[in-house]
């Protein structure tokens, strides 16, 4: 890439792009560490599912997408929203249940929406949103647009009917959807070996004659590189693709589930942490001299500031007015 011209995402060169991917991943990590703290202080309640450990998938995929491509995901949605550029303070305000939250305090952690950024939500019913993504793909085809849909879901959604019906439809009708399975090895306390008859999850796409890819979901640069090609392919070939990103969640299923104990050991988690996506990328950029320690420190300080501001904003924001209870039930 020439040094002076910026690419579509506004990066001057490859090092600039890599730093920006690192920055997004770090923002997600710090934001969610703070989220866990705020949950412990009861500023946040209900179900709250952290993405810590899995950042490479959303950072790579959404980083590789065009701004007008649609993103839709599950309840584990903070990372995707941040990667899409949704304002951290309005996400934190949503987690706090405040009027200034992206969903006006009505959705909470599981239901972040920012339609202006084509962030089509966090969804709570496993599998259901996969059909919604397919419908967005249908609309894109219908209107002869050239966007694609990035649809994220856990491996736990692969056995659902909505998943299979959607894949068949998307393949049959050639819809521009990237189905991204975030295989973090567990659906709540159930390891994938006990939920899927397929040993190799990606092979499910074969049933629908859909191309598929395996992706190292712990490697931000690989995720970005492959997703760029995949999205380009879907956009030009106008047909769906299935991606299995092999990743790992460090935390419990939700804030009410301990990280380890019942269904996995601390040793297993520690082993995965040795491939931490953020550490790997930092290391790589340092080795390649694309960043130095000082720049990393500055980046971390900047992000800490953003996260602090987000908490302050959320804390100081008003509760939604009681009069808003019946708002938005119907469109006026």
């Amino acid at each position: 890439m020439p040094k002076t011209k910026k690419d579509k995402q506004g990066h001057r060169d490859q090092a600039d792009l890599h730093r920006s991917l690192l920055r997004t991943a770090l923002l997600i990590r710090r934001f969610e560490e703070k989220t866990a703290e705020m949950y412990a202080l009861a500023k946040i309640a209900g179900f709250c599912h952290l993405y810590i450990g899995e950042e490479a998938v959303a950072v790579g995929a959404i980083g590789a997408a065009r701004e007008d491509d649609y993103v839709i995901t599950t309840y584990r949605d903070h990372g995707h929203a941040l990667a899409r550029g949704v304002e951290p303070k309005r996400i934190m305000a949503e987690l706090f249940g405040k009027a200034t939250g992206v969903s006006k305090g009505k959705g909470g952690s599981m239901h972040l929406f920012d339609v202006s950024r084509h962030f089509m939500g966090g969804h709570g019913i496993v599998g259901g949103h996969i059909a919604l993504a397919t419908g967005m793909g249908f609309a894109i085809k219908y209107e002869k647009r050239d966007q694609v849909v990035l649809c994220f879901f856990g491996e736990g959604a692969v056995p659902t009917g909505a998943f299979h019906e959607s894949l068949n439809l998307a393949a049959l009708w050639r819809l521009p959807v990237v189905y991204i399975c975030e295989n973090n090895r567990f659906g709540m306390g159930t390891p994938v070996e006990r939920s899927s008859a397929l040993y190799d999850i990606a092979h499910v796409a074969r049933a629908y004659d859909m191309p598929f890819h395996h992706l190292d979901g712990m490697d931000i640069l690989e995720s970005y590189k492959h997703m760029s090609q995949i999205i380009k392919g879907v956009r030009s070939a106008k047909r769906p693709i299935f991606v299995e990103a092999q990743t790992y969640r460090y935390m419990g299923h939700s804030m009410s589930d301990p990280a380890h104990g019942h269904y996995r050991t601390k040793e297993e988690i520690d082993a995965q942490k040795s491939r931490d996506p953020i550490q790997q990328l930092k290391q790589h950029l340092l080795e390649e001299k694309q960043i130095d320690e000082k720049a990393i420190r500055l980046m971390e300080e900047e992000i800490d500031g953003i996260v602090q501001d987000a908490v302050k904003f959320a804390d100081e924001s008003p509760d939604p007015p009681l009069s808003s209870l019946m708002d938005d039930v119907y469109v006026d």
Binding site: A45, G46, S103, G105, L322, L325, M326, V329
Partner: peptide, 16 residues
């Protein structure tokens, strides 16, 4: 329950 989806915010949920 009030005739609306149950919101997340504490005050609204209680009111619902």
């Amino acid at each position: 329950g009030e005739d609306c989806p149950i919101p997340y915010a504490k005050n609204l949920e209680e009111a619902a």
